[in-house]
Structure formats: structure tokens, C-alpha cells
Design a protein around this nucleic acid. Structure first.
Length: 560
RNA sequence: UGCCCGAUAGUGUAAUUGGCAACACGCCUGACUCUGGAUCAGGAAAGUCUAGGUUCGACCCCUAGUCGGGCAGCCA
């Protein structure tokens, strides 16, 4: 399949083009994707992954995977593993360039010593509370720490002792000596190192001091020869600090930080904290619940890597906060599945039909296309018999206007089979419809030349051959476009109570009996579905990825 | 009454870098169809936040304002 090759221009590519023209970095382009292993990747990360790996590819450069693991209290190997898996699944390859910020703890320490020697870093023995109180506010300057002017020797000794574990957590921090009156809060002597006795997923108990993001990130980028360090908007104000460390350390060929707006998607939440809350409080079944915007959730839902890459391309890259319409994501997956998913028939809410003029024991094997969009997908046969099931929604005793489906006296075509006519509606003592009696027209067999045509075609399954299945219909997780908009209400108040609808009495065509987890299908006239990872041959479970566009639903709605 | 950033159809992005607004999604019509899907054809929809200025000419440059977002973790 061909992917969108003409990537639209964006301001980051403009910057790179200009850098290349000016001969910066000797014409190299090297990016990195730097997740913190403290949660699962979501669709917003996918945008960043596609951006970073995509740019590297288009400019003949490289993109590293680097785990930003400077806070051992929050990070776990479980997340490292899931992140690797998700990026690979998305279709990107970091080759042998998987790094950890923790790989650089030694060098980071040495660089810190260098700053101390140059009197641009000092050990502050103030408490966290005192540091906070002396930082000032956005409108008022801060106060200098009483420890700000310790001698180099004293700082060196203290910092080394911090490393050696001579002090308790929080007793001292290492700070950059910049400007307590800076209008940019991040330049008011930011903390570089803190003492934290926590086991690190990678370095174990080797260290008891850990660098802060603002200090570790620019240096990690420099160590890896990154040229363009792409991050999200909230780091914009950190940029002067990013540059400050590199300049003070006299590092050449410095990477450039560029910020873009993170992805916003309506009817969902994207913060790791909130997603974690949904998982922990049981609103969803886990990180890979098909309603989650996580990559593992989307994967389980049936989204393909191609569709997510195309989506990421289409949302664009800019510097303004924006919210993308969920419909764009849905369009991306429909577009992909339309050309690759086999069409099959499945009845979600069965309504029995007896074809009164069809021989009792006869069974025909009818031929049908696997995918009309792709002739190479071939054909298959499906059994047809006297007793079949159709969708309850495809019958109305009293049809509304423009209803092209089955109703008393009307004819419809059974997809790939015959035209039938509804003669009798059979009801039980409660007046509920139990079955329909129809007659078929033998002259209208599918593929038997040009027979009559009727307005409606519906799907069906043969009763004796049908296979039972459970089908899970998903809808958006939230009822509000922006569940976080109202700060008098918790976002969880907007959870859609109908986001999961389990249909347990569905019937699918026999060929689906041995469908394997992950297999994707179009249930004709309904939508795209995939086999859930927990599905078994004894109990088939399908997840609805996305419904087909439904213009009848629109017509009907307008009529009301 | 601080600092930083942003503003283009309903939504998200473009605009050969100063030449008079385009693409995608969505929406509406129609054609076609053994999926009310797909496909095809067509359509509505912004005059670029506001007010000035520079210029033959401004979405683009300048000034002032408005609105929105971010910044006071020993989080990233």
C-alpha cells in the first residue's frame, strides 16, 4: 500500500531546510524520541514518534530511542518494554541506538563537577521549603540562597559526599548559579541534582543522587549528537536553560530545541495521570482497553500502524494548541481497512427467517467476493439454507419513509444469495415478533446473470451453519468534547455509560470459527471488527474497531 | 501592572517567504452500486483576531490592543 508520500511542509521542516542550507551540523539531521518510562504510550506520543522518525527518514538522518529515566521513583521496566513494543509495532526502527539517560549518569556527574569548578553551580543546603519560598513568583524576583557563595572547594567536597551517600535525602541539592531575578522562573538557580535513595530500574542502587530533566536532557542530546531536539510546547520556556547548560559547558555543535503543539483529540483525555486513573479506578479494563487512546488500546481495538501513521501525518505540526476531530482518526482507519479487510457476514441481533418455498434439507454453497475493493483477495463460499437469520434492524413491520429493507410485502436481496419477499410476520402471545415467513425467487440467484434488482440488500447467516460469537461495540469514552474543560467537575463525570455494549448472541458465518486474535474483517454493512486477543475457538470475541459510515441513520434522524 | 508563546472555513493544517487564500476531515447534492459502504461528480463554508502603519500590493513586515495557552516540583 502506498502511504502519503508528499508530507506537507511544517515549521520544523522549514527550520531544518534552513539549517541544511547554512551548513549547520555538517548537513546532519539526527533526532530522538525521549519517553519517560512511567506509563504507556498513547496516540499523542504516536504523533511525536512519527514526527521524529519521519523527519530522520526524509532527511536521510537518524532517530534514536532514548528513555528519559532520571526519576527512579516513577519509572519501571514494564513501561520500557511496552514502549519498545509500541514503537516497533508502529513501524519504526532505532536499530542499535536505544539509549537511557541513565547511561550517562557518570558523564553527567563529571560535567556537574566542571560547572562547580567554574563557579556556575553550587550545593544548596536549604530545605525544599526554603528553596520554594525563595524562588519568588512569576511577578516577583526570588532571593539568593545563603549557600550561594560557597567556595569551589566546599562545593566540590559536598557534591562528592552527596554522591557517596553521606547525606540524607533532601539534605542538599546541586543548583545552577544563574539569576534569581530572572523573569523566567526556570533560570532562577534551577536544581540540577537531588539526593534520592531509590532503586533505579537500570542502575539499581549505584546512585543516590539523580539529575533533573533540565540538566540531563540537553547533555544527553549533545552526547548523542542530536541536531534537532523536538519537544512539546510546555518546554518552550525551558529553552534558555537548555542552551545555558550547553554554553556554560563549552560544548560545540549544540543541538537545537524546537517545540511543537502536542496532539489534542476531542472526546478523550490524553494525560498519563488521567489515563492511569481510568485504569486504576476500574473505569476501563486496563491500559489496553479498546476504548483507551493508548497505542496498546488502539491496537486491541483493531487500528493498524498504517492508519495511525497516516493520521499523524494529517493532523499536522504547528505551535498552537489545537484539538483534532476524532472523526479524522476514524477516517484514517476506515480508509486503511476498506482496502485490506475481508468482507464477511455477521448478524448482531438475529431475527429468524423461514424461506417457505425452499426445500427443507437443501444446502447451497454460494460464492462471494472476499473484498470487492481488492480482486486479488479472491472468493469463498458460504452456505445457504431454508432457515436463516437477518438483522432485527433490517426489518420493520411498519416501514418509515425511504426504508429500503424488509417489511411485509416487500422484497430485498440477500447479499450473494436470492431475492426474498416477506409474506408473514409470526408473533408470540406477547405480540413480539419471533420469525418471518418469506419466499425466495429461484431465478434471482446471485451471479446468475442480470436478474431483477431491488432497492435493498441485506446480510444474513444460515441457521444450521452459523457460529456463535460475542461482539463488543465501542463508542467514545466520554460524552463531552472536552472532558477537562469544566474545572468545577471531574473529568470522570463525563464518562460515557454506553462506551461498551456487549452483544453476546451474535451469529457469524462458519468460516469465522477459526479466526485468530488480531484478524480483521468488515462485517458487511456494519463496520470493521477484529478478533480480541482473549478470543478462543470455543468463545469467539470480536471488537468493533469502527462502524461504517451510515447514511441511512442520517436520513432517519433527519426525518424525525 | 511580570515573562514566554500563539491566533487562517465547523475542525486540523497550507500558502512558491510580500503577489490578492489551498488541502484534508466533516457537512450538503447528485451519479453508480448485490454493502444506504466504497467510488465518482458537484456544492456550501474563512477574506486570515482588532485597530493603525509600511508598501503599487500584507495572512506574511512594524506598532498598539484583544483573546487563548504556558511559567512559582528536589516531576518530565
Amino acid at each position: 500500500m502506498e502511504e502519503n508520500t508528499n508530507t506537507p511542509s511544517n515549521f520544523i521542516r522549514d527550520i531544518i531546510d534552513k539549517d541544511l542550507e547554512e551548513g549547520k551540523h555538517n548537513g546532519r539531521v539526527h533526532t530522538r524520541f525521549p519517553p519517560e518510562p512511567n506509563g504507556y504510550l498513547h496516540i499523542g506520543h504516536a504523533k511525536s514518534i512519527c514526527l521524529n522518525f519521519g523527519i530522520a527518514k526524509d532527511y536521510n538522518g537518524l532517530c534514536n530511542l532514548r528513555f528519559d529515566d532520571t526519576n527512579p521513583e516513577k519509572e519501571e521496566v514494564e513501561y520500557v518494554d511496552s514502549i519498545e513494543e509500541d514503537i516497533r509495532w508502529l513501524g519504526f526502527d532505532w536499530e542499535d541506538r536505544m539509549y537511557f539517560a541513565s547511561d550517562y549518569f557518570g558523564r553527567l556527574y563529571d560535567f556537574a563537577v566542571q560547572l562547580i569548578k567554574e563557579s556556575t553551580a553550587y550545593v544548596d543546603s536549604s530545605s525544599a521549603e526554603e528553596i520554594k519560598n525563595n524562588r519568588g513568583t512569576p511577578t516577583e524576583p526570588g532571593n539568593e540562597s545563603p549557600f550561594r557563595n560557597r567556595t569551589v572547594e566546599e562545593n566540590l567536597k559536598l557534591f562528592e559526599e552527596m554522591k557517596e551517600g553521606k547525606y540524607e535525602d533532601g539534605a542538599h541539592v546541586l543548583r545552577a548559579k544563574i539569576d534569581m531575578a530572572s523573569p523566567n522562573m526556570h533560570m532562577r538557580d534551577p536544581v540540577m541534582y537531588r539526593i534520592k535513595r531509590a532503586e533505579h530500574h537500570n542502575t539499581g542502587n549505584e546512585w543516590c543522587i539523580y539529575p533533573m530533566y533540565d540538566y540531563a536532557h540537553p547533555i544527553s542530546d549533545w552526547i548523542e549528537h542530536i541536531t534537532h531536539s523536538i519537544c512539546t510546547l510546555e518546554f518552550e520556556i525551558h529553552r534558555p536553560l537548555y542552551d545555558w547548560f550547553l554554553i556554560e559547558l563549552h560544548l560545540e555543535d549544540r543541538p537545537q530545541q524546537i517545540e511543537f503543539a502536542r496532539l489534542g483529540l476531542n472526546y478523550t483525555v490524553m494525560s498519563k495521570r488521567k489515563l492511569l486513573q481510568l485504569v486504576k479506578e476500574g473505569y476501563v479494563a486496563g491500559w489496553d482497553d479498546p476504548r483507551m487512546p493508548t497505542l496498546s488500546g488502539l491496537r486491541r481495538r483493531g487500528y493498524t500502524p498504517e492508519s495511525i501513521r497516516n493520521f499523524s501525518e494529517r493532523v499536522g505540526v504547528a505551535k498552537r494548541d489545537a484539538v483534532t476531530d476524532y472523526a479524522l482518526l476514524e477516517h484514517s482507519i476506515r480508509e486503511d481497512l476498506n482496502i485490506r479487510a475481508s468482507r464477511v457476514m455477521a448478524v448482531l441481533k438475529p431475527l429468524k427467517i423461514v424461506i417457505t418455498n425452499y426445500p427443507d434439507d437443501k444446502v447451497e454453497q454460494l460464492e462471494t467476493d472476499n473484498n470487492p475493493e481488492d480482486t486479488s483477495a479472491g472468493k469463498r463460499t458460504i452456505p445457504f439454507s431454508k432457515n436463516i437469520f437477518i438483522e432485527q434492524d433490517d426489518f420493520r413491520e411498519v416501514p418509515p419513509k425511504k426504508f429500503h429493507r424488509l417489511y411485509p410485502g416487500n422484497e430485498v436481496r440477500l447479499k450473494s444469495a436470492y431475492i426474498i419477499k416477506c409474506n408473514d410476520v409470526i408473533k408470540n402471545e406477547n405480540g413480539e415478533i419471533t420469525e418471518l415467513h418469506c419466499t425466495y425467487d429461484p431465478a434471482t440467484k446471485s451471479g446468475a446473470g442480470d436478474s431483477r434488482s431491488v432497492k435493498g440488500t441485506i446480510h444474513w447467516v444460515s441457521e444450521p451453519h452459523a457460529v456463535k460469537a460475542e461482539v463488543r461495540l465501542y463508542d467514545r469514552l466520554f460524552t463531552a468534547e472536552d472532558p477537562e474543560a469544566d474545572d468545577t467537575k471531574d473529568f470522570k463525570e463525563f464518562i460515557n455509560p454506553h462506551s461498551l455494549d456487549i452483544m453476546s448472541d451474535c451469529l457469524v458465518e462458519p468460516g469465522l470459527a477459526d479466526a485468530k486474535p488480531g484478524d480483521k474483517f468488515q462485517f458487511i454493512r456494519q463496520g470493521y471488527f477484529c478478533v480480541d486477543p482473549l478470543s478462543t475457538e470455543g468463545k469467539l470475541v470480536f471488537n468493533r474497531t469502527v462502524a461504517l459510515r451510515d447514511s441511512w441513520a442520517r436520513i432517519e434522524k433527519k426525518g424525525k
